[in-house]
Amino acid sequence: MGAAAEPTTTTTDHEGERPTMLKVTGLRKVYDGGAVAVEAVRDLTFELAEGELVCLVGPSGCGKTTLLKCIAGLMPPTGGTVELEGRPVTAPPPDMAVVFQEYGRSLFPWMSVRANVELPLKQKRLPVERRTGLVREALEAVGLAGSADAYPWQLSGGMQQRVAIARAVAYEPKVLLMDEPFAAVDAQTRADLEDLIRALWKRLGVTVLFVTHDIDEAVYLGERVLVLSSSPTVVQDDVTVDLPAGRDQLTTRRDGRFTELRTRVYAEIQRAKRGDAGADGRPQDRTGGREGSPVAGGSPAG
């Protein structure tokens, strides 16, 4: 966020070779519920390059949240590894922030908006002036500069999620994990928040992994869409979204290419639901039939 004032240039360049930021290898999670063990995630392998915005979609109950918690270091995986900049993740890493779907439960009602955003920075032992600056910039970035002294429960749902996003942004993470963050807000607010995420991502150069069940949202937001199979989960498809970087709720969603990509992801999800994803592997053509130039972050699954 310190760099927020001066725009960063590296982030919009999504063509060049970029170092790997987040690497998930053979991730497996089995919930051992006494007599019955449930395999939530079977074998997940993918990578995010530095500064990439990747969306993760899958049928409901496919273990998206489980995966995210493993990546965030909140839950130990049964097998496989998660690496952040080459270092294995075993506890919540200081370079990572998570935005949860349940903003109402993720924000602390006993703290003002300002205190909520500032708390993680206090834990980082940043000096007061720096904290104040970061909090102010983050709240300005999400358009809530005037609500610093309010309490979360005095705000609307969309505004509360903005506070949660501001808290994540002020933390200055290298990787931002978002777990269906807009699933509980209304459609108009949702469109605004989607654009907010695109704008913040471009401005801050942060690597974003955005989990959603909404196919349109995934295609609209992402540079890449990872489609997960139903449980037990593997990466079923990896779709590069070759839409222009400047996206707009009206024109982008009207774009023929947008429709093509959405159709493709939709078909994959349907296939995942039927459960005939699978062992036979993944489609050869990663870019969905147009100019096959697989770019950032190849993810050889399986």
Binding site: G73, L74, P92, V98, F100, R105, F108, L119, P120
Partner: peptide, 21 residues
């Protein structure tokens, strides 16, 4: 709340800090 707890953990709050906040 488990979500509040996970939020605190993900932002690096240790055991004592979580008890307090």
């Amino acid at each position: 709340d488990p979500v509040a707890e996970q939020t605190a953990r993900s932002y690096g709050l240790g055991r004592l800090a979580r008890v307090r906040h």
